[in-house]
């Protein structure tokens, strides 16, 4: 059965309180690797928003219109990853054709996204929580925006941290994790307003 959540509530919940990165730890690898540089962080974040929206909608359709009627649910992991890889590939070609300038900023991040756990994670969450079509689209978009906000904030904080006196052993990944922890606590502050699990 489909959970009874207003799409608007779901949107804000997925951006803030149930931020896929800070509450569900999805997409950590590229989050830590790319957040060193603000410009790349922004590019990757925007690419994640687009890909998440497209793949959530596509995978919802594939799962409910093809896999469920054929009783092939157990193949979902393979099918989801193929749909993600294919749509990223097509998106890359489309962007290259339509706007070379946009391709220069987003293009290099698109292949990275195929193996970004945020994408597969959101698609699996949609399926586990049994969202409707509209809810899936809203959740995909909201999660993308939430991820983008998280990565550009971390990139900005890390820029400041470069000048801070940090013990040698804590430099790099160590202090980044602690920063993310503090950010996660800040985002949890919203959770009194609404929560979606």
């Amino acid at each position: 059965m489909t959970p009874d959540i207003n799409p608007i509530v779901l949107f804000f919940a997925s951006v803030f309180t149930s931020n896929i990165l800070l509450a569900n730890f999805l997409g950590m690898c590229s989050f830590i690797a790319i957040s060193k540089d603000f410009k790349s962080a922004n590019g990757l974040g925007l690419a994640v928003i687009i890909v998440l929206l497209i793949t959530s909608v596509l995978n919802w359709a594939v799962y409910h219109l093809i896999l469920v009627p054929l009783n092939l649910e157990y193949l979902r992991f393979i099918v989801f990853i193929i749909v993600i890889a294919a749509s990223v590939q097509i998106l890359e070609m489309v962007i290259d054709r339509i706007s070379p300038a946009l391709y220069m900023t987003l293009g290099i991040f698109l292949p990275l996204i195929t193996v970004n756990c945020a994408i597969l994670g959101v698609v699996l969450l949609l399926q586990i929580r049994n969202y409707s079509f509209v809810q899936s689209a809203v959740f995909g978009l909201g999660s993308g925006i939430g991820w983008w906000i998280a990565i550009i904030s971390l990139a900005a904080i890390r820029k400041k941290l470069e000048k801070a006196p940090i013990p040698a052993g804590l430099k790099g990944p160590g202090i980044t994790f602690i920063t993310i922890g503090l950010m996660a606590m800040a985002f949890m502050g919203f959770s009194g307003i609404l929560s979606v699990q």
């Binding site: 730890f25 790099g172 160590g174 602690i178 503090l182």
Partner: peptide
């Protein structure tokens, strides 16, 4: 969730 980040952060600090 935040506690996992803190613990990993401190563990990496110790190991490094």
């Amino acid at each position: 969730p935040p506690s996992a980040f803190f613990i990993i952060g401190f563990l990496i600090w110790a190991v490094k």
